[in-house]
Design a protein around this nucleic acid. Structure first.
Lengths: 215, 215
DNA sequence: TTAGCAGTGTGATTGTGTTCACAGCACGCC
DNA sequence: GGCGTGCTGTGAACACAATCACACTGCTAA
């Protein structure tokens, strides 16, 4: 019973998602129990961190057998529940957009996804099992079938406008791949995945050859 | 004169890269001076943070006119210098790989880039001005032309092996798009860009409609 | 049955990154 | 020329997240 906990820290949510991914794999391999240090090694965090996380979300294990794989997955499902999201609205069906559809199709076939593009050649077709609409239809499609998450995979110049349109159409979370900072209402969650920026960052740390792999 | 400062914090490097991007744009618009609060608004951080960052890297402005755009760009170039990197070795020329080449060609035409793929159909051709080699040639190409940064855009199953090969070939920084955690020596910097994970994270925060846009 | 052991649960601590608050300064204006 | 204004530079305070350290628990085996 997920007791609707108070705001989970940003980083912790990432770890929980990662835990779940590995737990599912363990389940597939027939494992029923797992220890904190095993989960920790897989995710490059400390066992103490894992225990703290699981404590925070209120899942408890046993010293003798560790944590129950299946029970933990269900507990996480209660927290990370994504059924209420409606689905993902992806704008921009270029290379990046199609790569994202790849991920969605492969890892989350259960989600509803609609793709949009400005280029008529790309629209109307089915990509990875998802329908690609003309961008003009964005408002209509989202009115018929509400989606809480928007993914911005358009050129930098179009990113801000796209964000506004998505928000107006009811989206409350954005994953932004464009190399610009979006200006949106505080009520909207924005995660930036700025590839060009990451490339430069890695380049910086690669020079020194330092060991800084956080997270 | 970059005084080879001690390890810069991970997050701060991201901000510095972002600052530089905006400064270049300002320069293009003919601005010569900029205030901390202007830079801050563009990047969604506080003015105090900007001043602190610039202080840390040892760049100093004037109360009357703010910071000199051109001087700051040059100062940042000294810190973020990427000439010594050799270039980027991109493994995986699928949709994602080509999207990354897009970014590189558009934002960093000055970098040297080599792409690799296992599929003979994709190799030998020129994409976005970059040569795409057969994966077997990785060691040979990097021996001839050392590159410090590796970008992993291959399926999850192949990611770990790819990482090992890149490191053996002299790479000391990795940008990993595969949805797995890599196990690498401590001397190698790894940045994970786990798109599937980010999608789930945004989905989580979109549900609550919370305002959590960190960074 | 009891000692040993391996792992969990958690208060306390440390460490790190961000924000506050204010002294100091340079220009513009009266 | 002196005064006000608005910005920078920075020590201090704060907030948060990760880590440590250890009491507690349940199994195992002699």
């Amino acid at each position: 019973m997920p007791d609707r906990v108070e705001p989970l820290p940003n980083r912790m949510v990432e770890r929980l998602v990662a835990y779940r991914r590995h737990l599912r794999q363990c389940l597939g391999e027939g494992r029923t129990q797992i220890y904190s240090h095993e989960l920790a090694r897989l995710e490059r965090v400390t066992p103490a961190q894992v225990r703290r996380d699981l404590m925070t979300i209120g899942y408890t294990g046993s010293p003798a057998t560790g944590y129950g794989v299946e029970g933990l997955i269900e507990h996480l499902a209660g927290l990370l529940d994504t059924r209420s999201i409606g689905g993902f609205a992806l704008v921009g069906a270029g290379h990046l957009g199609r790569a994202i559809l790849d991920y969605l199709a492969r890892q989350h076939p259960e989600y509803q996804v609609a793709a949009f593009d400005i280029n008529p050649e790309k629209t109307g077709r089915i990509t990875h099992g998802y329908r690609c609409y003309m961008i003009d239809e964005l408002e209509r499609v989202l009115a018929e079938c509400p989606m809480r998450v928007g993914v911005i995979a358009v050129p930098a110049e179009a990113a801000q406008d796209t964000a506004i349109r998505l928000i107006a159409a009811g989206v409350s979370g954005l994953l932004n791949f464009a190399p610009v900072r979006l200006h949106v209402p505080d009520s909207v969650f924005v995660e930036d995945a700025d590839i060009a920026l990451l490339l430069e960052k890695v380049a910086f740390f690669a020079r020194a050859g330092r060991s800084e792999e956080k997270v």
